[in-house]
Design a protein around this nucleic acid. Sequence first.
DNA 1: ATGCGTGCAAACGATTTGCAGAGAA
DNA 2: TTCTCTGCAAATCGTTTGCACGCAT
Lengths: 138, 138
Amino acid sequence: MPDQPPRARRRTAQKKAVSEALEAADGFVSAQELHRRLSDDGQTAGLATVYRQLNTLAQDGEAHVVTTPAGQLFRACEAGAHHHHHLICESCGRAVEISPPHEDWLPRVAEDNGFSISHHQMEVFGLCADCRAKSTGA
Amino acid sequence: MPDQPPRARRRTAQKKAVSEALEAADGFVSAQELHRRLSDDGQTAGLATVYRQLNTLAQDGEAHVVTTPAGQLFRACEAGAHHHHHLICESCGRAVEISPPHEDWLPRVAEDNGFSISHHQMEVFGLCADCRAKSTGA
DNA sequence: ATGCGTGCAAACGATTTGCAGAGAA
DNA sequence: TTCTCTGCAAATCGTTTGCACGCAT
């Protein structure tokens, strides 16, 4: 199976708008939320397009996705970035990149159990300082 | 907010059937899959009931849930069990409990970033020895 | 000119819920 | 008897897709 030549990608206004909005978000956002922000911003981009664009970004490694029971959340991340995980604020979505000390431990347990690892995911949820302050004050 | 007195739980045939089927699974299964197995087994339990029962088990800490883009998968786990994670076979769903070395590391990064942790999740996906053998042989 | 990207609305699929009846306590 | 649990079907809801048109290349 010869790897597919990377599909041609055109630069359109919507694509730019979506990735810029995603980067501006500084945290995880849902497709719907992003779409709403774009609309509020006067940008025109159909919800379907936002989804499509977001999925493309994720495929190209330019965005991270976390799947929650409520749906998927996206975040801008450099394509060639080092493998990492996130500390996510459940209230505002803000995220901090973290690098858990398990990267070298994983292959070992895998082998011990006869597994071959294809991928793993880990996300830590909580409240950032700001949101904590707000909720406490309220 | 005084904590709610735990809702009364009745013991019904369906409840028993669902949790037994879940335990028999020895791995993660979707609600639909579990429902299918029950049906094939002659058991009668509506899909809605399976979902409700599964959610109840999860709430009561008697089952673990992992949310994948394809939906949620459930696995039986003792209620009072020590906090742990899983090494999951993507092919057959079989899972092995693992205890990553990050449990004491987490509070530190959290504090360093001003976050208070509410919960975290981590799952490792791959292929178990059996499934690897099968796919290789095929 | 070619054919990818977009918009819209319809289609999907997993999960939830309303309601009336059945069965545990 | 009382009130939770069940079944079924309808309703949700996030996400995907078909199709025709516009625009990047």
